[in-house]
Simulated assay, not measured.
Amino acid sequence: MDSQNTYWTDRALLEWQVELGVTDAILDAPVDRYALETVKPAPKAATPEKPVAAPEIVKVPEVDAAALARTAAQTAADLDALSGAMQAFEHCELKKGARSFVFSDGNPAARVMIVGEAPGREEDRAGRPFVGRAGQLLDRMLEAIQMGRAADNAAQAVYITNVLPWRPPSNRTPDAAEIAMMLPFLERHIALADPEIIVLMGNTPCQALLGRTGITRMRGDWVEVLGKPCLPMFHPAYLLRNPIAKREAWDDLLSLKARLRG
């Protein structure tokens, strides 16, 4: 009977302690756990790391775009073939941003070949050189000496092209690498058209074919390019910005007319 009472008494005490929030039973004597030896896990054997091979650097062979252009240009037997070779040329970055390929305009049999810089916005839209305000001024200049791109008579006609067939972004000036890259096509273009006289309009064609710039000093002075007489002149766009220079441009037109008369 006494043991049974003790059981129920002890149980009641335990339940009372649980209600008070007791969760763990403790020993009668305190334990200094800081004095206990901590059992540390055995260290893992170090695994030797395998050396990581450096990634192989694959060198992309450099492309000589000018040499490729020269090869492509030399294989062109006529102007149509040259136009096709230029359109197939994939090494000029300007091609990616241009709307149109601008090859030439006028009469290929003309005695005079005019070389400009590159297509502008209007030329890029039309696919023809010199059709914007500068081109309209050029047409009026040529009409003043009884010449024009639409003339059927080769003696009065002109043939027009540019150093670059694609428009540079924002009409910026072509850089030296772009000029050097496309120069073989221009030289072949001149050889196939075989004009009597070449007119270089502005600094860019002078840089391409004469190797120098400074159109204000060079204009009006006849030089030789690829075995042909050549006349540097102001670009019509320059004349639109500087109308006072039209007097000098008129002198150059008269010089061209006199040269054609022989």
Score class of each variant (00 low, 15 high):
Gln4Trp: 10
Trp8Lys: 12
Thr9Leu: 10
Asp10Ile: 08
Leu13Asn: 12
Leu14Thr: 13
Leu20Tyr: 07
Gly21Asn: 05
Gly21Lys: 08
Val22Met: 11
Thr23Glu: 12
Leu27Cys: 06
Asp28Lys: 15
Asp28Gln: 14
Pro30Glu: 08
Val31Arg: 12
Val31Cys: 07
Arg33Phe: 12
Ala35Asp: 09
Ala35Glu: 11
Leu36Met: 09
Glu37Thr: 14
Thr38Ile: 10
Lys40Ile: 14
Lys44Asp: 11
Ala45Ser: 13
Ala46Ser: 11
Lys50Thr: 13
Glu56Gly: 09
Lys59Tyr: 11
Val60Pro: 03
Ala66Cys: 06
Ala72Gly: 04
Ala72Cys: 00
Ala73Asp: 05
Ala73Ser: 04
Gln74Thr: 07
Gln74Met: 11
Gln74Ala: 13
Gln74Asp: 15
Ala77Arg: 14
Asp80Cys: 01
Ala85Ser: 15
Glu93Tyr: 10
Glu93Ala: 14
Phe101Trp: 00
Asp105Gln: 12
Asn107Cys: 10
Ala109Gln: 15
Ala109Glu: 14
Val115Pro: 00
Glu117Arg: 12
Pro119Trp: 01
Arg121Cys: 05
Arg121Pro: 08
Asp124His: 06
Asp124Thr: 00
Arg125Gly: 04
Phe130Pro: 05
Phe130Met: 15
Gly132Val: 03
Ala134Pro: 02
Leu138Trp: 11
Leu138Ile: 07
Ala144Trp: 03
Gln146Ile: 04
Ala150Ser: 10
Ala150His: 13
Ala150Gln: 10
Ala151Phe: 01
Asp152Gln: 15
Asn153Ala: 09
Ala154Lys: 06
Ala154Thr: 09
Gln156Trp: 00
Ala157Glu: 03
Ala157Gly: 03
Ala157Gln: 03
Ile160Ala: 00
Thr161His: 02
Thr161Val: 10
Val163Trp: 02
Leu164Tyr: 06
Trp166Gln: 02
Trp166Arg: 04
Trp166Thr: 01
Arg167Gly: 00
Pro168Leu: 09
Asn171Phe: 03
Thr173Trp: 12
Asp175Glu: 14
Glu178Arg: 13
Ile179Pro: 05
Ile179Tyr: 03
Ala180Asn: 07
Ala180Ile: 13
Met181Arg: 10
Leu186Thr: 03
His189Ala: 12
Ala191Trp: 02
Ala193Lys: 01
Ala193Val: 11
Pro195Tyr: 04
Leu200Phe: 08
Met201Leu: 15
Gly202Lys: 00
Gly202Arg: 02
Gln207Val: 13
Leu209Lys: 03
Leu210Val: 02
Arg212Ala: 12
Gly214Pro: 08
Arg217Trp: 08
Glu224Val: 15
Val225Ser: 13
Leu226Glu: 13
Pro229Glu: 01
Cys230Asp: 01
Pro236Lys: 03
Leu239Asp: 01
Asn242Thr: 09
Pro243Gln: 01
Lys246Val: 07
Trp250Asn: 11
Asp251Val: 08
Asp251Ala: 12
Leu253Trp: 00
Ala258His: 07
Arg259Pro: 00
